[in-house]
């Protein structure tokens, strides 16, 4: 079975984010880049499936990034993916969720797949729209919010998270699923994995090679960012050191009462 995992390269969550006033985009230069944390879970789910299903299962990582993101993608290979495809082209700068679905779709049609696993959200955009857009572009069944893969041999049986529990869902392959972090904690690359990753193939596609010029870049995007601003800051509040817990509770109660919250 051929599993493909989509991976987004994002600025480190813990780093302070800046937006360029001219381009209105996130400043990426000088930022420590990481794999979108949700995608690490997607990769983990893929690697666990590979361990279950045996040697003829492969895990391929597919990523779209305007600049050269090879170093970040190496981590995915070090975790255990077999190979990677990078769609790397300056023309991709400013591509929106719809466009990303089209670009990834074109790459995946070339690469081939039985199962695509995506992270449920991206850490910088949090639109969560790419998995749906990609499934629609490829015309394959899409199953969102997967928290556990029960089986993936011949067909799929998964648990999908809902607002108050989960539902058991089944469907055919090929398909696309997007996972939540309940699928299992991502592994750390082993030393052997890190060494081995250097020899694993990374293939690069350009926008022209994929014939997706009509979907790439800010000019084709269906949304535009008009403005951004830091919110009216939420400063440090008051610190209360009560004599005992009962007084602590009383202080909170009175505060909530004053704010008409109880």
């Amino acid at each position: 079975m051929k599993i493909a995992v989509t991976v987004k390269i994002v600025p480190d969550t813990t780093a302070e984010k800046k937006i360029d006033a001219a381009t209105k985009r996130l400043v990426r230069t000088g930022m420590n880049l990481v794999m979108n944390p949700y995608d690490e879970y997607a990769l983990e789910a893929a690697l666990r499936l590979k361990e279950q299903l045996g040697a003829d299962t492969t895990v391929t990582v597919v990523s779209m990034y305007p600049e050269n993101g090879k170093e970040t993608i190496r981590r995915a290979l070090a975790m255990g993916a077999d190979d990677a495809y990078l769609i790397s082209d300056a023309a991709l700068e400013g591509t929106d969720a719809w466009g990303t679905g089209v670009v990834l779709g074109a790459a995946l049609r070339k690469i081939g797949f039985d199962l695509i696993i995506c992270g449920g959200l991206s850490d910088d955009g949090t639109t969560g729209a790419v998995p749906g857009a990609l499934a629609e572009d490829l015309g394959v069944p899409g199953i969102a919010n997967v928290r556990h893969i029960e089986s993936a041999q011949g067909s799929l049986k998964v648990q999908c998270e809902t607002d108050n529990g989960y539902q058991v869902v089944n469907g055919p392959l090929p398909a696309l699923i997007s996972v939540t972090m309940a699928v299992g904690e991502p592994r750390y690359p082993s030393l052997k994995g890190i060494m081995g990753a250097k020899k694993k193939p990374i293939t690069t596609f350009t926008v022209a090679e994929l014939d997706v010029a009509g979907a790439a870049g800010a000019a084709n995007a269906k949304t535009e960012l008009l403005s951004f601003a830091p919110p009216a800051g939420r400063g440090k509040g008051q610190v209360v050191k009560p004599d005992d817990s009962a007084q602590g509770a009383r202080v909170i109660f009175d505060y909530l009462k004053e704010r008409k919250l109880v």
Binding site: D96, A97, W98, G101, G125, T126, T127, G128, A129, V130, P131, G132, A133, A135, E136, D137, G142, A144, N145, E161, T162, D163, A221, K222, T223
Partner: peptide, 23 residues
């Protein structure tokens, strides 16, 4: 903007070849 709502929204947007603004 719930788990199911986002799923529906993203696919409707893709079908209509349009954009989505989230949250």
């Amino acid at each position: 903007n719930t788990m199911h709502g986002r799923d529906i929204g993203s696919r409707v947007a893709a079908r209509l070849k349009t954009g989505i603004v989230a949250d």
